[in-house]
Nucleic acid binder design. Structure first.
Lengths: 151, 151
DNA sequence: TCAAATCATTCACGGCGTAAATGATTCCGG
DNA sequence: CCGGAATCATTTACGCCGTGAATGATTTGA
């Protein structure tokens, strides 16, 4: 007869929900450390990425898709403008709206962050076979949609 | 000849490293909202889980494994003690050390959080086949070890 | 035309996490 | 065995991030 091993004293640590939390936090932390040299923080990069996929987005739209307060977007835009990554453009059709537009420097910074993110991804998935990596990516995308996230 | 489709205007959003970041953040946010009724925050639950798998751990050890400052553990322990989830016990062999021990109430709270985490996991992995869920779990565990996280 | 809604911005605030200083205890070299 | 250095917990002060509540400018619609 098989010996009944003791139950894991804290099954919580093994749940995927928990692991996703701590993995996400650690990845963010390392990403933040690597982009610090560009005078960027993760949310700045998020804005740059959104601007690349939807040019000239208003600040309020950015706030909504990122799930943060509009006042926070103002500060992020201020900083991005200060380092020359974006410029504010008043919408001529509705002069209340401030659209943000990537500058060449912003595109450049985004490209650097993209390379960085790809490099991190290679490290994260190291040791998995190519098909395993692929199915992990699609499963993760599914998890994202289950959370009502874009894509 | 195949038409060359335009490149994704921001491939960054599609990288697994980026998705892990935002998925982790959203999961943490929802987890936090659900445990708020117990007067708990995610880090409190982390301490409870560590205490379940390694009873009577010193506060400094907790700080090290969680990667936070010892002064933060003090505040977390204060709060957990106040709501009756843990008790402080001085190590008789080294009276500088404060070990934390789960109370019955702490075990109870941890069990509730564990159920919650399992329930969230079911929602996150909804729409994946059983083998897909299994391989996602093992791949995620691999990612965790690639980040030097405990298993 | 004017009141209500919308957008950007500023401001003050709360909360999390850190580093430094303090005190108690333990360790160790001479 | 003794005194200085290291270790652990705690307190305190500080910075930073994110929010919500004004404020002002502009647009909408009745």
């Amino acid at each position: 007869m098989l010996v009944m091993t003791d139950a894991d004293p804290s099954p919580l640590l093994g749940t995927s929900a928990f692991r996703l939390r701590v993995v996400g936090a650690v990845v963010t932390e390392r990403f933040a450390a690597e982009i610090a040299g560009y005078d960027l923080k993760p949310k700045h990069v998020g804005v740059l990425a959104l601007l690349a996929s939807a040019p000239a987005t208003s600040q309020l739209d950015l706030a909504r898709t990122m799930g943060v307060a509009p006042s926070l977007i103002v500060r992020i835009a201020d900083h991005l403008e200060r380092i020359g990554a974006v410029e504010r453009v008043r919408d001529p059709a509705d002069r209340r709206r401030q659209a943000l537009r990537l500058t060449p420097r912003g595109t450049e910074l985004l490209a650097a962050c993209t390379r960085l993110s790809r490099s991190m991804e290679r490290d994260l998935l190291a040791g998995l076979s190519a098909p395993d990596r692929a199915s992990f990516r699609t499963a993760l995308a599914r998890v994202a949609t289950n959370l009502d996230l874009p894509s």
